[in-house]
Structure formats: C-alpha cells, structure tokens
C-alpha cells in the first residue's frame, strides 16, 4: 500500500478532495469543528480561499463551511488518490 501524503487542511489547494485523519487540540474550537462533522474518515473538498487568502470555504457532508486558516491548521488530512 502506497503511503498517502498527509498534510494539514490549511495547506490544501482549492478543488482538492481530502480525507480527515485527526483533529488536533482539545479545546472549544476543536469541539466545534468536530460537531460540525469534521471527524476522522469524513471526506471534504476545499472550495476556495477568500480574496485576501483567509478564511477558506470547504464542503463536507453536503454543506458548505467557512473557517480560518488557524483553525484549518488543526485538521490533519490525507489527499485522496
């Protein structure tokens, strides 16, 4: 099995689909992200970054969510394919 490249969500380019591996941290922010469906195994697509580079828009579980890069940096993902 080939090793899938892993990275954090803030380093993913628009249009790319990724799978969540883990969610770092224990605080309220992490909890909110998890409640919104960012759990290990969930697939998400980075839709776009805002014109000034932050925040970013992702789509998961069939809906769209916006979050800042600093929150996205808490999400470890692996690229699909």
């Amino acid at each position: 099995m080939a090793l899938l490249p892993t990275t954090t969500l803030d380093a993913v380019a628009p249009g790319e689909q990724v799978t969540i591996l883990t969610l770092r941290g224990e605080g309220a922010v992490t909890q909110r992200l998890a409640e919104m469906g960012m759990v290990p195994g969930a697939h998400l697509t980075v839709v776009r970054y805002a014109p000034m580079g932050d925040p970013l828009e992702i789509s998961l579980h069939g809906y769209h969510l916006s979050l800042r890069r600093r929150e996205a940096a808490l999400v470890e993902v692996s690229r699909c394919r």
Binding site: H64, S66, R68, E71
Partner: peptide, 12 residues
Amino acid sequence: GQPAPFVMELPS
C-alpha cells in the same frame, strides 16, 4: 479572551 473561532456555515 481567546480569539473567537470563525466557523461559519455558508448556506445555499
């Protein structure tokens, strides 16, 4: 206080 997270749904 801690900076508020900006986790916001973008509705259709």
